[in-house]
Computed example of a mutant assay.
Amino acid sequence: MKCSNSLVGILNFVTFLLSIPILGGGIWLAHKATTDCEKYLEKPVIALGVFLLVVSLAGFIGACCRVNWLLWVYLVVMFILILILFCFTIFAFVVTNKGAGEAVSQRGYKEYKLGDYSNWLQKRVDSSKNWNRIRSCLVDGKVCQKLSQETNTVANDFFAKHLSPIESGCCKPPENCQFTYVSPTNWNTNGNRTTTNPDCNAWNNAPNTLCYDCTSCKAGFLQNLKRDWKRVAVINIVFLVFLIIVYSIGCCAFRNNRWDSNNGWKPYR
């Protein structure tokens, strides 16, 4: 069997093996998921597992068994996947080119404003349906639990902490609310509720409320998302190069299949 056919067969066999735990993980989530966040993941994970399973089988059978139409379908799907990944990578860099934390005087953490981020991202988190899901994930993920357990932390030590964007935006009130520090997730309002910043009115010391309904929390989430998307975009570039190489090898295998079909294929000895 020609080298290109063997390489495509091996690569797709490995992909087939990888698809099994992914599909199994999705099925496990479908039956065992207890939180809204976990339930939200089950369908994409199952879809990814099925997709990898079907495509890898098509590539493996098409290359190793010389089934031209299956290999053609495999190459078409690979080409579409390359285009999608390329477009997503460009899109990820474009929508994450805005937004950054603002340093606060005598504070170890930064604060984040929703208006600093791209309009597309703002619209996504401003949607009540989307934010309710995200909020549920943040609460279920107990992102503020670590801070809430630090009940003996004095104010100066807390103000010097390097908080993550979500911790800064969701677990404490904004600085301009001028609330009095009691503990990391417990603040005395002193009657300083103000209408100039709606986040001050949204703050509540209840563990499942805090500042999860604040625009600063949405901004902190977008800052995390921005960082993660940029990492994914860099990984996508590497993955795109790999896919293009595999696609080129697949094209060689398809050409071999056609040549063998036209000249009468016989097993190699």
Rank of each mutant, 00 (worst) to 15 (best):
W265P: 00
N256C: 11
Q223I: 07
I244F: 13
K43D: 07
S6P: 00
V241K: 11
W265C: 05
C170I: 03
C137I: 07
E175Q: 09
F159M: 12
S56M: 08
S261P: 03
M1G: 07
K110I: 04
L83Y: 01
S261A: 09
I249L: 15
V55N: 05
L163W: 04
L18A: 15
K39N: 12
D213C: 02
G26Y: 05
M1S: 09
K43A: 12
C64M: 14
V50N: 06
S56L: 07
C37Y: 13
L240V: 14
D199S: 06
G9F: 11
C87S: 10
K146T: 14
T151S: 05
C137R: 05
I90P: 01
A155P: 00
G108V: 07
N205Y: 05
F158E: 10
C171L: 06
S6C: 13
N152A: 07
R66T: 06
S127P: 01
N12I: 09
C3D: 09
N257F: 05
T96W: 06
I245L: 15
W229E: 05
L85K: 01
I20C: 12
R255C: 15
I84G: 03
A219M: 07
M1P: 06
L11Q: 11
L163V: 12
S19K: 11
W28I: 07
T189C: 02
D260H: 01
S248Q: 15
A30P: 01
K2T: 06
N176C: 00
A92N: 00
A63M: 04
F93V: 14
W187M: 07
L52Q: 11
F60R: 03
N192E: 05
Q149N: 11
C37P: 00
S148Q: 12
I27W: 08
G250R: 10
S6A: 14
K123Y: 03
N152F: 01
N197I: 04
F221S: 04
C217Q: 05
G62P: 01
C64L: 14
N256W: 01
P21V: 13
N132H: 09
Y117T: 06
V246M: 13
C251H: 11
G264P: 00
F86L: 15
I61Y: 11
V8F: 09
F60L: 13
F79M: 08
K123G: 08
C3E: 10
A233D: 08
D228Q: 15
I80L: 13
C251P: 00
L81N: 07
I134Q: 07
N262I: 06
T180W: 01
E38I: 04
L240N: 10
R231W: 15
L222C: 04
A155T: 15
Q149W: 07
F254N: 02
A47N: 11
G115R: 04
A155W: 14
W203Q: 06
L75K: 00
N201T: 10
R107I: 04
